[in-house]
Design a protein around this nucleic acid. Sequence first.
RNA 1: GCCCCGAUGGUGUAGCGGCCUAUCAUCCAGGCCUGUCGAGCCUGGGACACGGAUUCAAAUUCCGUUCGGGGCGCCA
Length: 435
Amino acid sequence: MNLRDRKRSSEIDPDVDSEVIVAGWVQTIRKKGKIAFILLRDRAGIVQITAMKNEMGEESYNALTKVQRESVLAVRGKVQKSEYVKRGFEILPEEWAVLNGADAPLPMGVVDKVNVELDTRLDNRFLDLRREEVLSVFALKSMMLSAIRSSLEGSGFVEVQTPKILKSGAEGGATLFQLDYFGEKAYLAQSPQLFKQILMSSGLERVYEIAPAFRAELSDTTRHLSEFTSLDFELSFIKSQDDVMDVVEDMLDTAIKAAMENGQHQLKTLGIDLKAPKRPYPRITFEEAKAMLEERGKKVEDDLDTEGEKILGNIMEEKVYDAYFVVEYPEAEKPFYIMEKNGTPWSYSFDLEFRGQELASGGQREHRPDVLEERMRKKGLNPADFEFYLKAFRYGMPPHGGVGIGVERLVQKALGLDNVREATLFPRDRFRLVP
RNA sequence: GCCCCGAUGGUGUAGCGGCCUAUCAUCCAGGCCUGUCGAGCCUGGGACACGGAUUCAAAUUCCGUUCGGGGCGCCA
């Protein structure tokens, strides 16, 4: 039996194939005396192997029907049309081999009729991913990222990689993981922010990066991870932050439409009726948002809290807007690299909100070195610590802006998942470092 | 970092001081069945997180440890 000749379950055509080799995981064996039905699963689907004692001989039949669930099994056999089987055909085994047996009992059931808690699932992610609905999330994530890449490439963005081991962080250092770098203190990058901006000075004009970001926040919520995938981009020669939001909107729209188009099967598996958010995404100023919330009796101080975010999400949902921008936050709430709206307490910043949750944060950057240094001091930072960054601003830095988007949050919200960990293969959080 | 809550077979649970040699389902093992498809039926197997305390008696109450769950803050 040569496995190179194996057919994936979805490729078998009973009108054409008379004999096939299939291989996959044994999902269930329904033994019924002298006949047994084995459901063999591969990534593409499931085929039924029908084993008959009188055809195969007692010894082979007994051995085959004793194989443990989730073992890897290869079968060569006749393809036979059958009205008994849902797919219209079955495979009558002529030769079979267990490529790798599974221990029993399984640490968690793949098709058992009992719930499994997320924690148990994550401890046994390899088994969890054997479930079609779990795998579907990651197939859809891949489709969305692929669409985002083409969308950005089509708009003239260049993909870049920036260092994840840094001497200093983007905003000081409170949320950084510290590590030992040949005897010197170093940190894991919480964002590619400073490097994206340095690249604006290089003349690349438009760059994007899809890479991990690390946050040592002691957060323990359904929307935080210690390591997440950050989709960042930065573009030069913008007139205002509206130019950045335009790209974000196009990108999100493309990503969701790609999932709708290419992921129909997966969406059906998950039972999700995915719809692209209504465009254009409204752009509400912070002050307007504050007024809308206060109208509902919700006090707003300097920033939107989680409750405020959710209420605003509900208000916008009533107007059939799933996605919207909140723009011009108080500059005091925003990092040093954001441009102030001169003469006002506001800033040229925006958050992308999706059904009441922050998905992305961006804005126009301060590109004038003297103003930038002043802002750093205002935020309690020492410009001398950021010399490698400030240097790039002194020899020709174009006006620019950009954004950082949480990829797992995007997938979580788009697919309506309860927990961001569901959108992460091997999540890292405050309590989880393994697997 | 703060506030709540929880830990019972491999998995998911019932239990709320003595009626627990601990319930049910799933699972595993064995048996019956040649058309199953959440197969069915019969028999059997397997657990009170750890350490201490209270009590005649602790799965059950109390304290600590470890590990989880939800929320807040912070953020993507």
